[in-house]
Design a protein around this nucleic acid. Structure first.
Lengths: 201, 201
DNA sequence: AACGAATGTATGAGACTCTTACAATGTAAG
DNA sequence: CTTACATTGTAAGAGTCTCATACATTCGTT
């Protein structure tokens, strides 16, 4: 047995790798990415500051592991949201809201997940996108979304929209515009744009 | 005369504040945000590492000044793009392309401009948004955009879309999807979604 | 039981941010 | 012109961080 079971008082920690990822996530939530340090994390876990390097090549490798967990969490959040309704338009709204909620509730992790860099977004993030493509496709079939745009393109656009909205909200970019928008209303107003246009007043 | 005129060999630099902002922008372009340091910048400019603190409270204050410059640059880029055509749909495409180009050509500065945090996006960024609202409004009037969504909302949505697309591209999120998309095609495919739906084949 | 692999520690080099005390220079009034 | 003051630079260092290296302890396997 290699993993599980918590903190020991013995020389070997027992499950330091998991403790590092968990602790990093927690520390990120508390202090944000700016206030995060490997040293601080190691002290919290009661190990030496060199110990983390037995499990992660460097600071970025640990953050990447946290990001991987974030992708998984986002994926399940989106799938759950999609499963809470049968109406394609509803599904879209719920997924958008779930995405936005994830971002605002885990700003630091969200920031790490989509940090610019050569490492890029791993294939782990292909999964959430695929769900979106499926939902978009069925929404098009149901006539809720315009069908003169290929599903992949439309899904990509909607992803970009919700992602951009999340980034802008996190950056405080809407503070000067509308202060009283609830996330739900924000997601609705935004995603309504993609629904089939209602002609006539 | 307080400013202008370059680097002196005397005790006082003469225009260290501007040199710091310019040098920071340059250093950010060369090394990215991760490789950027005040110490390094000070050495490049031939001053002591404490000198920058005479002009900026801390590292973040300097980066905020660089971000301000970025907002201005983005604003003129968008206005220029909007001025290069009379057709509302064209304007929208050109502006989107300009936004995307700015992001990909200045990834570090773009990242700093929209960094999450309490400081948020300054009012400086309200200007570029206002241009977009105007263009959207006239596009709606010309019948190029659906008019069942208020211009502010539609403009906000389009901003989110283009911003999100830029972020995703910077993060490498599209690498696994479509490798051969030119930025122009990417912007076109994305923004086409907002144009008035063409009924019939 | 003993050996090798895994995992943690001790120590420290080098870099960075930011502070404090001091020195040189610009500016303006007498 | 000179003196007084505000501005802007330097020198030195405290405290933190990442990461490397050498060593210690424990685990698993034979």
């Amino acid at each position: 047995m290699s993993s599980s079971s918590g903190n020991r008082a013995s020389y070997h920690h027992g499950s330091l790798r998991e403790a590092l990822v968990d602790g990093a996530r927690q520390l990120l939530v508390e202090t944000g990415e700016a206030g995060f340090s490997l040293n601080n994390l190691a002290r919290r876990l009661g190990v030496s500051t060199a110990a983390p390097y037995r499990h992660f090549a460097d600071r970025d490798a640990l953050l990447a592991a946290v990001a991987d967990g974030g992708y998984a969490q986002l994926d399940t959040a989106l799938r759950t949201a999609a499963g809470e309704s049968d109406g394609p338009a509803d599904q879209l709204l719920l997924m958008g809201l779930a995405y936005l909620s994830f971002a605002t509730e885990n700003p630091a992790i969200f920031g790490i997940m989509f940090r610019p860099g050569p490492d890029g977004v791993k294939e782990s993030n292909t999964k959430p996108f695929q769900v979106l493509v499926d939902v978009v496709e069925s929404a098009q079939f149901a006539g809720a979304l315009r069908d003169d745009v290929p599903p992949r393109i439309l899904a990509r656009t909607i992803w970009a929209t919700v992602h951009g909205l999340s980034c802008i909200v996190l950056a405080g970019g809407l503070a000067h515009l509308e202060l009283d928008d609830t996330p739900r209303r924000l997601a609705m107003d935004t995603l309504r744009t993609f629904l089939r246009e209602e002609r006539a007043s």
